[in-house]
Design a protein around this nucleic acid. Structure first.
Lengths: 156, 156
DNA sequence: AGACGTCTGACTTTCTTTGACCTATGTAGT
DNA sequence: ACTACATAGGTCAAAGAAAGTCAGACGTCT
């Protein structure tokens, strides 16, 4: 078995015991597995990315840590569908707004959240000298990112 | 737990008991925590700055002291300050995250809103081939746009 | 052999903690 | 008033503690 797979499994077991969230020390974990600390980052990047349904945050310096949160769980199916299939690589402001208002109607997001998302992808918020093509690409990524965060909120 | 965190917590407990204001002796506090006196200044600078919603004043010499005051400010006042004065034309991801977590701590935004905003300005959400300078400019605009949307909701 | 996935190590960045030195204020002696 | 000393907080640079990044070595399939 590969090292990465062992580490992945180890973390997933922690997540099953503990709850949907686990906090660990990168150096300790690396020591435990007898590998370079950066190996941990590799595992996080390849197996615990948002695309895989996880969010991670960390802090450097004395007393630093890495926290991993599992997002995917029944209940946020619709959102995950949007993130994985419906939204592609590009979304215009109009498409964003349409999507957002649909989500609001289906009561998947609150009115406040809808307004917040709309303001983030608004023309006003993105009025910076960048080609429209890139702005729309950004909108798609922002929408995915925000929906992931809402899916995380919906967990249990 | 980090020393800084302990000291921060200690002061916040004092602030909760006493009132909105607390006065303490730097050397005594340092002695109590068994650390260098300048550590106290570090905690003040990183956790009790005006951005965090606190003001500090002090006096040297015999009978010197440090006074910490929690600024009471309505949510929308704070949001408007951020939009009009604090946030300029450019904001890095780190600065965004710092501001967002401060707003969360001050209970001006909910944890969900904070997560949503953080995901919108994340590197992940903006990972398109655009110079960092422009991304940071966009972050500033997005933050203002989102904060105004929250201010509109609050109405107080 | 080539392509893709794994792993490491050197270097970087961020956050914390300490210590040496500096400045301001009060008090006592002249 | 002036000087001197004690008291107390301020500043800053350097060391320490952790995590992040990335290029390149290494493996494992096809």
């Amino acid at each position: 078995m590969r090292l990465s797979d062992s580490i992945e499994q180890f973390i997933k077991e922690l997540l099953n015991q503990e709850s949907t969230e686990v906090e660990l020390k990168r150096n300790e974990l690396a020591e435990y597995f007898g590998c370079a600390p950066s190996q941990i980052n590799y595992v996080l990047a390849t197996r615990f990315s948002p695309d895989h349904g996880y969010l991670t945050e960390s802090r450097r310096g004395g007393g630093g840590y890495i926290r991993i949160v599992r997002v995917v769980q029944s209940g946020s199916q619709r959102l995950m569908y949007l993130v994985n299939d419906r939204i592609g690589d590009s979304l215009s402001e109009e498409e964003c707004l349409r999507l957002i208002s649909q989500l609001k109607e289906q009561m998947i997001v609150t009115a406040d959240e809808a307004a917040l998302m709309a303001s983030a992808v608004s023309t006003r918020a993105l009025s910076v000298p960048v080609p429209d093509v890139l702005k729309d690409a950004m909108r798609a990524k922002m929408m995915k990112s925000m929906l992931m965060s809402i899916a995380a909120r919906n967990r249990n």
